[in-house]
């Protein structure tokens, strides 16, 4: 827990919107340790999703340095980024993004096609409470169940970095808490979990809370005593 697993040095990301230049991230410096459960908070347009996309190898910074597990991914080629996503990163989206034409089990096994994993899909599904739904198609599941499929798919890879973009945004409080428990469990198993959210309540369970505003880090607080998940609600 002592070395930084994720390091961002002076990271900026600029976009051209029409003829207007827009800075989504402005010289951001962040350090995250392996196995930390990090929540990134901020209003819309603060740069949360951009930060997540850069960490996930889906986007690259305009300037600055991004290191993950000692490797500078900000210099990676498209091919290296593909391999990085396949091997290191798990993604969880607000709207799940699971394949509608693959069954639950097939969605989870999908990662076997791109990364080496010795995990058993059914066991993973069991761990997220979906073993009995393995042969169902996504449209036969509730929103919470679909998000758990998404988590199972990410977990199946055994990723070093689990990136979650508003993972509870489309869920009710009770289902959301179930999902958060699963994410916490991943962090406890030494996966670095980064959750981007609007929901300040979730910050109470995090090891670290980073507040972004206008593309800058406003506050970076280490939470010495995170709350137990069952203690939060919204």
């Amino acid at each position: 827990m002592s070395t930084n697993f994720v390091e961002l040095k002076n990271v900026s990301r600029e976009y051209l919107i029409g003829e207007q230049e827009y800075k989504a991230l402005d010289k951001v410096n962040i350090n995250i340790k392996r196995g930390e459960f990090v929540v990134i908070l901020g209003p819309s347009g603060a740069g949360k999703s951009t930060l997540l996309n850069i960490l996930g190898g889906m986007d690259s910074p305009t300037s600055g340095e991004v290191r993950v597990d000692g490797h500078e991914i900000s210099n990676y080629s498209a091919k290296q980024l593909t391999n990085y996503r396949a091997d290191k990163v798990g993604f969880i989206f607000q709207f799940y993004n699971i394949m509608p034409t693959l069954t639950v089990e097939e969605n989870v096994r999908l990662v076997e096609d791109v990364s080496e994993t010795d995990k058993d899909a059914l066991a993973v599904l069991k761990s997220v409470g979906l073993a009995k739904h393995a042969r169902k198609f996504p449209n036969e599941l509730s929103g919470g169940e679909q998000q758990r499929v998404s988590i199972a798919r990410a977990v199946m890879k055994d990723p070093a970095l689990l990136l979650c973009d508003e993972p509870t945004g489309a869920l009710d409080s009770k289902t959301g808490i179930e999902v958060l428990k699963l994410l916490r469990q991943q962090a406890d198993e030494n996966t670095t979990v980064i959750v981007v959210t609007h929901n300040a309540q979730i910050a109470e369970i995090a090891d670290r809370v980073i507040h972004l505003k206008n593309g800058r880090v406003e506050r970076d607080i280490e939470n010495k005593k995170p709350k137990a998940i069952d203690e939060v609600s919204w």
């Binding site: 996930g56 889906m58 498209a78 091919k79 593909t82 391999n83 990085y84 996503r85 396949a86 091997d87 990163v89 993604f91 993004n97 699971i98 394949m99 509608p100 999908l110 990662v111 096609d113 791109v114 990364s115 798919r153």
Partner: peptide, 16 residues
């Protein structure tokens, strides 16, 4: 589009 995007996010190469 979004299914291919998801596959890309998961690490599927463009060729694949």
């Amino acid at each position: 589009d979004y299914q291919f995007s998801t596959l890309k996010v998961l690490g599927f190469s463009d060729k694949r």
